[in-house]
């Protein structure tokens, strides 16, 4: 029985990883505004969905693998490190928030977007050994919030549509 659940879970996480990779790919081809670090964060939809439907370990694993694979395919090692730092901190932040009764996926996602951008800003400051990059902080705060809200609405819809995988142990008829 236990084995069966694990197979189900593995398959589910695998499909989610594939979906997240496709979203990363789509986002890679979207035009970027003048300020580095501003991006939609489409793959955050999958991270949120997994958080609500599979819990922190699944969400974290898929997000880390997604960042590594996406950057191997169409990024660079440098952007991979930024992506990992931002992605891990954002997922952990969202994991801390998502059980709060007063928050819906939209607010959780907005917080995740802000944390993602601020983490990358701190990384950039560490790499350049200069605080000059914090001039981008206002733009990144606002863009992180707005994009987080956007992906949060997408994720809220997906979470509503998808049955809870934890209770999915029922035998198929």
């Amino acid at each position: 029985m236990n084995e069966k659940i694990n197979i189900r879970r593995t398959a589910f996480l695998g499909v989610m990883l594939a979906l997240a990779l496709v979203l990363s790919f789509v986002e890679h081809h979207l035009p970027s505004p003048g300020i580095p670090g501003i991006k939609l964060g489409l793959a955050n939809v999958v991270a949120l969905l997994l958080l609500y439907r599979s819990g922190l370990p699944g969400a974290l694993a898929v997000n880390v693998l997604r960042v590594v694979l996406a950057n191997l395919l169409f990024g660079s090692v440098a952007s991979m490190l930024y992506g990992l730092a931002g992605g891990i901190c954002a997922v952990i932040c969202m994991a801390l928030l998502y059980r709060l009764p007063r928050l819906s996926p939209v607010g959780v996602s907005a917080a995740g977007g802000v944390v993602h951008n601020l983490t990358q800003l701190v990384c950039a400051a560490a790499v350049t050994e200069s605080l000059a990059v914090f001039a981008y902080a206002p733009a990144l705060l606002v863009s992180g919030t707005l994009c987080g809200v956007l992906t949060g609405f997408c994720a809220a819809g997906a979470i509503r549509a998808l049955p809870n995988s934890r209770n999915e142990v029922k035998k198929p008829k």
Partner: peptide
């Protein structure tokens, strides 16, 4: 929810 608005 209201908490969302506060964060945003």
């Amino acid at each position: 929810k209201r908490g969302d608005l506060i964060i945003i």
